[in-house]
């Protein structure tokens, strides 16, 4: 018998701090698998966000840089402009990218910055224990919308992939989900394609990954996956928004 599935080399062999059943861990593995399969660990530099993944520089075996909240796309720009032949990715949550970091992501995208952005959308602030995020759904309870998100007070959730797809800079934008095995495998292909877009110097690539937060949603891990399918996907439809026909 031979091993058909094991932890990727680009993931450091240490336990991760994420809550039980949190799909951050899966997203990390998919990024690491893409790095392994494209054999780019030696020339990749990742940028960690502020949020639950703030210290994922400990989990990737490539060089890593931790960025101030929301500024990962700018940090990545500084790195990529300094090392144009290296592969640069950011890993950001919805608070980091869609709230404080909206200007940075919009301008990195519109510059067509040749970086890859892995954007984890779990409709909540996890690390700081459950506040409303820009992606929090209408009616969703959070510690800062205890009676459910009210658009009259907190406005409407942002669809980042669609928003960035209106720009001409991006080469590839896809929204994927981790709520079941089939979708995880599709998500992996999307992440790998995003890195290939960068390798082919085609420009800005972003994969929005619908993800769970069992702890702050108050659901067990299995129920949380259901919520992604039943409540999040209807508002955040999956699919390729830019670069569907892009050959890389």
């Amino acid at each position: 018998m031979e091993v058909v599935f094991k932890a990727p080399h680009a993931l450091v062999d240490v336990p991760m701090h994420y809550c039980p059943g949190c799909t951050h861990g899966i997203a990390h593995r998919l990024v690491a698998e893409a790095i392994d399969e494209l054999d780019i660990e030696g020339k990749t530099i990742g940028v960690s966000p502020v949020g639950c993944a703030y210290n994922n520089y400990l989990y990737f075996n490539c060089d890593m840089v931790q960025a101030a909240h929301g500024r990962a796309p700018a940090v990545a720009t500084g790195i990529k402009r300094s090392l144009p032949d290296n592969i640069v990715f950011t890993y950001q949550g919805d608070g980091d990218l869609a709230a404080i970091g909206t200007a940075e992501i919009v301008h990195a995208a519109t510059r067509g910055e040749n970086i890859t952005v892995v954007f984890i959308n779990n409709t909540i602030y996890g690390m700081t224990s459950g506040q409303m995020a820009p992606t929090t759904l209408l009616g969703q309870m959070t510690t800062t919308t205890p009676f459910g998100r009210d658009p009259k007070v907190n406005g409407f959730p942002i669809r980042i992939s669609e928003m960035l797809a209106t720009l001409e800079g991006p080469a590839y934008i896809e929204r994927v989900s981790l709520h079941d095995v089939r979708h995880i495998r599709k998500a992996k292909e999307a992440v790998k394609k995003a890195f290939k877009v960068q390798l082919a110097r085609k420009g800005f690539s972003l994969v929005e990954v619908l993800s769970t937060c069992p702890t702050n949603w108050g659901l067990n891990p299995v129920e949380a996956l259901k919520r992604v399918e039943k409540e999040m996907i209807p508002h955040y439809p999956l699919g390729v928004f830019v670069g569907a026909d892009l050959e890389v």
């Binding site: 840089v65 700018a74 940090v75 720009t77």
Partner: peptide, 16 residues
């Protein structure tokens, strides 16, 4: 796009 972005680009370039 802003001085905030600029200083973080500096942070990135300096990291290399």
């Amino acid at each position: 796009e802003s001085e905030v972005a600029a200083i973080n680009m500096v942070y990135g370039a300096a990291s290399t």
